[in-house]
Write a protein that binds this DNA or RNA. Sequence first.
DNA 1: AGGTGTGAAATCCTTCACAGCG
DNA 2: CGCTGTGAAGGATTTCACACCT
Lengths: 262, 262
Amino acid sequence: MAAQRDQGHNGDQPPATVTDVTVRDVPAARERARAIPEAAVARLAVYLRVLSAMGEDGVTTISSEELAAAAGVNSAKLRKDLSYIGSYGTRGVGYDVDVLISEIERILGLTRKHSVAVVGIGNLGHALANYGGFPSRGFPVAALFDVDPDLMGVPVGGIPVEHIEDIESICREREVTIGVIATPPSVAQEVCDRLVSGGVQCILNFAPVVLGVPDHVEVRKVDLAVEMQILSFHVARRADEAQAEVTVDGTRPGVGEAVVGR
Amino acid sequence: MAAQRDQGHNGDQPPATVTDVTVRDVPAARERARAIPEAAVARLAVYLRVLSAMGEDGVTTISSEELAAAAGVNSAKLRKDLSYIGSYGTRGVGYDVDVLISEIERILGLTRKHSVAVVGIGNLGHALANYGGFPSRGFPVAALFDVDPDLMGVPVGGIPVEHIEDIESICREREVTIGVIATPPSVAQEVCDRLVSGGVQCILNFAPVVLGVPDHVEVRKVDLAVEMQILSFHVARRADEAQAEVTVDGTRPGVGEAVVGR
DNA sequence: AGGTGTGAAATCCTTCACAGCG
DNA sequence: CGCTGTGAAGGATTTCACACCT
């Protein structure tokens, strides 16, 4: 059972594994890739999108301040993030948009194409199969899988649905590197196992279960219920705080009163 | 521009806001809610799901070790997380499943119902409207919105679609607290503004844009392209490391053999 | 014994603030 | 002069390890 990164803040797998030793002795060789904090990687992807949009609008140069504002972070963080990938800015001027785009794409490994397989062609699977953001950003959808006999061969977003039993052979054949699990939770682990034995290295899991995978496979999870519950927590917290304020100074904070503009 | 929590690791909003000062003097009143780290909140939601499943299987007591394994974290972290909400375990025994469920639900604010509005009834919106996980976990879908005239009044998952222009009045009327944005990016900010002026306090944003909101509104973002790119980064990193090992010791790591521990 | 609860250490991430380059 | 790049400080989170209860 291996690491399962959960939304940026990672963190299990306390003891070292056997092969760990090998890696620990090669800091120089893995310099670039390794040093980037997980959190920074997620933001680089955001910067990339913002930069692409800017580039299409004809912007050629941008300062850390501007890019930071557009990406919703502060400029110190942005500069630190960019410093992880190299020094591509010009002091007194800013960054060249095209250069930054290329460099971020290189670091994120977007120069290679990563074929995607979507498993579970329900509502969510449909949405994912049709999602334009995948192919346009270098993630061609190469295969769709389900168990429903009525779906077999039916093209969704241009790709025919195939049977879950063929995951292994088809993924291997089409060199799928990323598997997306959009099945009911009950079959998610089984599907995951098949993807892994089909050579898939990364899994994006929408099913509300914790998947067990070998160490060399990376899992990211998107859990709608968890997102909702985090929001719920914040509503509750806010209510508590408002309550506390009333208790203490007797004034109730105005409801519609925006505290800060935009 | 207000806080926009991005998948657990948050982190903008450097200066204090007005109300902050007032609150800072009331640690006692907000004791429970405030002290919980953001990262722990996300995990509590996961523990809750695992516990619910256990409860249905008839398990009445569970140790930190067992629960941690089922939730995919290590037991020290789990115990620390649970300690933020109180001391509900029995030394030498473990935790009572039902007690833990109740306490986590209380902390997450799940004792109140949070009505949800989904905006943008495309593939993803459909998937969300039909997603059984919402209502069953205390998040009734109270309204659906779109602009497509063909969709007006059509029931999706039992709820009729209404026009985006009516977001404000309908959200206010039905006391929607959580808005889900599943629109194209071009209209996401406009939709967001309407939700906010309709009194919505929390937003779950699936559109690939950075939303600007007032301080009292909480935004969480789910960005599929970003998730894919993070996975892509890890594939690239792994490839680099494998490469590095070959360079250094002349042995190529076997494919199934994990390269990095964690 | 067996397992929780928690200070303290270690690690990771963010922010500050400023030296230095163009 | 303006803006990048970055050591160093400051926070937050994770992990350790053990006192303490049952």
